[in-house]
């Protein structure tokens, strides 16, 4: 039998891991863009909030934040539903995983995007304004596209770290690739083989991401002359 009958389960777990990583990436990128805009905004309060967020989150381990939020969100939700007189809503590990990973890596993306926004020469923006574009138009037509080129290496790094961080979500009970291979290992008394399989699956995921990132980088740096060194 294919992987002693655990093949479909492991495929489902792998798919779960990929879904988790992609959705968390989406949340993290949105938070990161908002955070970077807040950090660069003229409003002092917004800047301080964003700085507090990135400093705090990057100083605390992912796993600690994950457990903190996983248990606390449920307790707060229970208090809220009790107070409103509703039935209890229990949150599942998948949404907690997406939200916490997105929230944590949003802090890293904030820093990436802030640096990238600052790397766009201000003459580019001035030229945009000189053409009579409005602020949002300058952002959309000039700033964003150029910013992405500077942000790409950082985005790639964050993505690779994020993919590996998804393994931790199995600790709060999500049936991801780690969890299902653990179960398969216990069921077949072949723990070593199945954990090795999980490691190989992660290695395949990071290798594929590497290739995609290299391709993206080539695309986004098209037309940029490389420095002869």
């Amino acid at each position: 039998m294919w992987l002693e009958g655990y093949g479909p389960l492991i495929l489902a777990g792998t798919w779960m891991t990929i879904k988790l990583a992609l959705l968390s990436l989406l949340v993290a990128v949105v938070i990161g863009l908002l955070g970077a805009l807040a950090k660069l905004s003229p409003n002092r309060l917004l800047r301080n909030v964003a700085t507090g967020y990135t400093t705090l989150i990057r100083g605390i381990p992912d796993l600690v934040l994950m457990l903190l939020l996983f248990y606390s969100i449920q307790i707060w939700l229970n208090e809220l539903t009790d107070w409103l007189g509703w039935e209890q809503i229990s949150i599942d590990p998948f949404s907690t995983g997406v939200l916490t990973l997105g929230f944590i890596y949003g802090a890293y993306f904030t820093e990436t995007f802030r640096g990238a926004f600052q790397s766009v020469p201000s003459g580019q923006l001035e030229a945009g304004y000189a053409y009579g574009m409005t602020g949002p138009q300058v952002f959309r037509r000039i700033l964003f596209g150029q910013m992405m080129r500077f942000a790409l290496p950082g985005i790639g790094n964050n993505w690779q770290v994020l993919v590996k961080a998804t393994a931790l979500v199995s600790i709060i009970g999500l049936a991801d690739v780690v969890k299902v291979t653990q179960e398969a290992g216990k069921g077949t008394y072949n723990m070593f083989g199945f954990v090795l399989l999980a490691a190989l699956i992660y290695l395949a995921l990071t290798t594929v991401s590497n290739l995609v990132l290299m391709w993206l980088e080539r695309r986004y740096t098209a037309g940029v002359r490389s420095m002869p060194l």
């Binding site: 961080a165 600790i171 780690v178 954990v195 290695l203």
Partner: peptide, 22 residues
Amino acid sequence: YVFRGTPLYVQLLLIYTGIYSL
């Protein structure tokens, strides 16, 4: 490449639960 391409948690599981099961 192998150690940077796999999560530390999986490496720990491999050593703690995997190797000890051999």
